[in-house]
Amino acid sequence: MENSFIRTFSNNRNKLLGLFSLIFVFVSLIVGVFVGAVSVTVPDIIKIIIGKVTGLSLFQGEASTEMIIWEIRFSRVMLAFFVGAALSLAGAAFQGLLQNPLADPYTIGVSSGASLGAVIIIFLGLQIPFLGDFTLPVVAITTGMFTLLIVLSLTQFASGRLTNETIILAGIILSSFISAFVSLIIALTPKEDISQILYWIMGSVSMRGWGHVKLMIPFFVLGTLIILLHYRELNTMALGEQSARFSGMDVKKKKALILVGAAILTGGAVAVSGPIGFVGLVIPHLVRLLTGANHRVVLPFSMLIGGGYLVLADLLARTIISPKELPIGVVTALIGSPIFAALLIKNRLKKRGEL
């Protein structure tokens, strides 16, 4: 009787949270498109978007208004949503896999590794012939995964096994080293090109378009499918690797697949927006507080809420000092840094038995 009540309560709570997540995403997208120098009513925004998607002529206003909404605002909002969703989903996967709320693409070093690959491509102006426009994301994903391998190797070498705390520490150390290397590249960059790299490093979705969204989508879909299809494995590994092995799971193979999926999401996001910190740290942690530890719920909710969150963070970045604009990475860092510090202190106190 009691178990049945708990199960019913949990299901109803998750349904409500699911409804809230969808409403939150819809409202954030509409608000993100609505706010701007040119005023357009919400019904007209909806008409323009539906008209563009379906090919129908629903909006009877000026062509310039239609272009502003579709080509500039909506493309930017969608890019922010995909980047936020990708980073949050990757963060949820890292946290679930390592059983550590401090794990995310930023602290593990994957984001820094992907950034290094992207900065090298921008600095050298390279384009691999058979990859074309996909050169930047493919290189970013590759360097991100390579960084992850180095972090895991350092952890194995330092402690003899892949302990979660050592992985976080190795990720932060390697991120610092990569940041120094990126600074060296910036120092060698001609003055006229420095602003481009610096603005990209701070993270931004401005001055992008549908080309960047289309570039992001294949990596987003692939990484999302890999991680969402492994929610059972993440739940099993939450009980410990030994329990997972006893259940018959190939732990190494499943771990590798989940890490690859998270690296694909991170690399794709970094390639189109630059490194944006703390999204993959804050959102999955908040979702777990609301839903519990079941990854069947945590993963999709993290994806939806993370996407909506970054849309609103971008809105804040472009309006708080209007007409000037802040890089979105600055806003997420200002919000995420205090939360990261609080999590760090909470974790330390828990280990000492003070909480």
Rank of each mutant, 00 (worst) to 15 (best):
F5L: 15
R7W: 04
L16V: 13
F20M: 12
L22V: 15
F24N: 02
F24S: 02
V42Q: 10
I49Q: 06
E62W: 08
A63D: 14
S64L: 12
E71L: 12
F81Q: 01
F82H: 01
A85K: 00
A86L: 02
A90R: 01
N100I: 07
S112K: 03
S112A: 15
A118H: 10
I121E: 00
P129L: 05
F146W: 09
L148E: 09
L149Q: 13
L154R: 01
G160K: 08
T163R: 12
G171R: 01
I173K: 08
I173R: 00
F177I: 15
L184V: 13
L184W: 14
L184Q: 12
L188S: 06
I194G: 08
I197K: 02
L198M: 13
L198P: 05
R208V: 11
W210L: 02
W210E: 06
H212R: 10
K214F: 15
T224G: 02
L234A: 04
L234S: 12
G240H: 14
G240V: 09
A244N: 04
R245T: 14
K252G: 08
K253V: 12
A262P: 09
T266G: 09
I276Y: 00
V279D: 03
R288S: 00
G292I: 06
A293P: 11
F301K: 08
L304N: 02
G308T: 07
A313F: 03
D314L: 00
L315A: 00
A317D: 01
R318W: 00
I321L: 02
P338T: 04
F340E: 08
K346F: 09
R352F: 13
R352H: 15
